[in-house]
Simulated assay, not measured.
Amino acid sequence: MLTPTSTALPPDFDSRHFRHALSQFATGITVITTRLNEQKFLGLTASSFNSVSLDPPLVIWSLGDRAQSMPIFTQNTHYVINVLAADQRHLAEQFASRIEDRFAGVEYSLSRTGLPILKGASAWFECFNRSRYPEGDHVIFVGEVEQCAFKNQAPLVYHHGQFLTSKAL
């Protein structure tokens, strides 16, 4: 029998094993958007998104602490979390790529704070950048939702290293 400790025990697995175990959990795919400067937007693909609270309405997502976009997301007051629909795999791949203009050819409208809401998204959440918490090799962002909308359509899902529609699960 293991005696409880006041700190975590060291893991009995390597990072590859951990990654494979995590891939068993199906996640939705989002594109987080914000403003880079007056003329340009910034967007990135993220699967680390979840709800936290209904009152107040809070959501979380995380970003690797070495991401080049970290200073922008840390300093900006707002961002939009776009939940991708099943037919938007191309957007997940485009916003995960290293191309310079990830918004090239992307249709969007602007939120009330002037940030991109991707056309055809299954849902979107305009968030005030409420707080950030460094944990491990990521920073957890807590967003206070100021506005949101949704459509009743199948979302894009990532499971076991593959993009799927929710109907394929």
Rank of each mutant, 00 (worst) to 15 (best):
F41S: 08
F41L: 11
L44Y: 05
A46R: 07
S47G: 15
S48K: 00
F49V: 14
F49L: 02
F49I: 08
N50T: 15
S51Y: 05
S51N: 12
S51V: 12
S51I: 08
S53Y: 05
L54I: 14
L54M: 13
L54R: 04
D55R: 10
D55H: 12
P57G: 07
L58H: 00
L58E: 07
V59S: 04
V59D: 04
V59E: 08
I60S: 12
W61R: 07
W61N: 02
W61V: 11
G64L: 14
D65C: 13
D65F: 06
R66W: 01
R66V: 14
R66P: 04
A67P: 01
Q68V: 13
S69D: 07
M70L: 15
P71W: 00
F73K: 04
F73R: 06
F73G: 06
T74F: 11
N76Q: 15
T77M: 13
H78V: 12
V80D: 03
N82D: 01
V83D: 05
L84D: 04
L84V: 12
A85W: 01
A85T: 08
A86Q: 12
R89Y: 00
R89A: 14
R89I: 13
H90W: 14
A92V: 11
E93W: 07
A96R: 08
S97P: 06
S97E: 03
S97T: 13
E100W: 09
E100F: 05
R102I: 07
A104T: 12
G105R: 06
G105D: 01
G105S: 03
E107P: 07
E107C: 12
Y108K: 10
Y108D: 03
Y108H: 05
S109E: 15
R112E: 14
T113S: 14
T113H: 09
G114H: 07
I117L: 06
K119R: 10
G120A: 08
G120T: 10
G120H: 06
S122V: 11
S122Q: 15
S122H: 12
S122R: 10
A123E: 02
A123H: 03
W124T: 04
F125T: 05
F125Y: 06
C127T: 04
R130P: 02
R130Y: 13
R132I: 11
R132D: 05
Y133G: 02
Y133P: 05
P134M: 02
P134E: 04
E135H: 11
